[in-house]
Amino acid sequence: MTDAMTDPEGVWHRLAGSRELPDGRERPDGHVLLDGFHALKHALRFGAEVPVAVTADRAAALALADELAPDVRPALDALLAEVPQSVYAALVPRPHPTAVAALAVRPSREARLARLAHLPRTAPVVVLDNPRNLGNAGAVIRLAAGFGATGVVTTGTLDPWHPTVVRGGAGLHFATAVERLAVAELPAGPVFALDPEGDDIRGVKLPDDALLAFGSERSGLSPELRARADHLLSLPMRPQVSSYNLATTVAMTLYHWSAQTSS
């Protein structure tokens, strides 16, 4: 008989009922990989259901919780199972410095759509139009959660729940609504799209029910999104500087919205 502690796939099979190979992809039973201590910490803080968590160094992980996240320390103490380093490393696409990994139940699509569609909104929805970079998408989700945005919607082929995106978002997918939709399926609300030819954002007040849309890193806004936009806005930029990073652009736009809200 193969022991779960020497069979990486067996860890997930026995503890979470996964049927997928341990390559970091979403499990067919609705589980997603939480890669690293901070992803697990945030998922627990924002109500994720986490059936299994493993670590190569339980004492170190709990010490990190004592230092950085005492609010979730009891939950981590009950969840974390220690496995050999070789087993942990085989369970994740790229070992995290904290040597922690977990499976969380992905929120239902119906719940995410209901949150995005609910009106009146008290914070904007961020729309990433045909994003290409998984890390940038994760960074945007982390920003959106930090600013209290209603959610993040992607259009196109990128899966916003891809393990690399979840890792980049530090588990904060569970703090906001994250979904992939076609442009025609976007929630109701005025669309303010960032474009180099748009009006200077500093002269525009962004309403709480806005959809803040950002084009892809390479090609900008798609024709479909541009046609859907109610307003085109631009960020101040020094001449001869080509562009800002996507996450930076989102951060500046959300800051502009939040500064108006708090003033």
Rank of each mutant, 00 (worst) to 15 (best):
R202H: 14
P120S: 10
H118L: 11
V165K: 01
F192I: 02
A144N: 09
G171C: 09
F147Q: 09
V126K: 10
V127W: 10
T157C: 07
V183H: 08
A210Y: 04
A139V: 02
A182P: 00
V178M: 12
R121P: 03
D159Q: 11
V166H: 03
V127I: 15
G203L: 05
P190R: 06
D199T: 14
A137P: 02
L186F: 05
D208F: 02
D209T: 00
P160T: 03
R132S: 03
T157N: 12
R112T: 14
L158K: 00
H173A: 11
V126D: 07
A117H: 14
R167W: 06
V140Y: 07
W161A: 08
A170V: 07
G169C: 04
V140K: 04
P124R: 11
V153P: 02
D200C: 11
P163M: 02
D195R: 01
A193Q: 01
K205A: 15
T122L: 13
N130Y: 12
G146Q: 09
G135D: 11
A175V: 03
V140F: 13
G189W: 03
F174G: 04
G135W: 08
R109F: 11
R109G: 13
L116I: 10
G169A: 15
D159E: 13
A170K: 01
T150P: 02
D200N: 15
P187T: 07
P131H: 04
A111I: 02
A170H: 03
L158D: 01
I201P: 08
G168V: 05
R142K: 12
L143E: 00
A170S: 13
N136S: 06
L186T: 01
L158W: 05
V152I: 07
P131M: 08
A145P: 11
A170F: 02
V125G: 08
V166S: 01
V183F: 07
D209M: 07
A184N: 10
V152A: 09
P120N: 11
T157Q: 13
L158P: 00
V191P: 11
A210F: 09
D208N: 12
G203N: 10
E185I: 12
W161S: 05
F147G: 05
N130G: 14
T176I: 03
P120D: 12
L134W: 08
A177D: 03
D209S: 14
F174Y: 12
D159T: 03
A182N: 13
L113P: 02
E179Q: 14
L158I: 05
R112A: 14
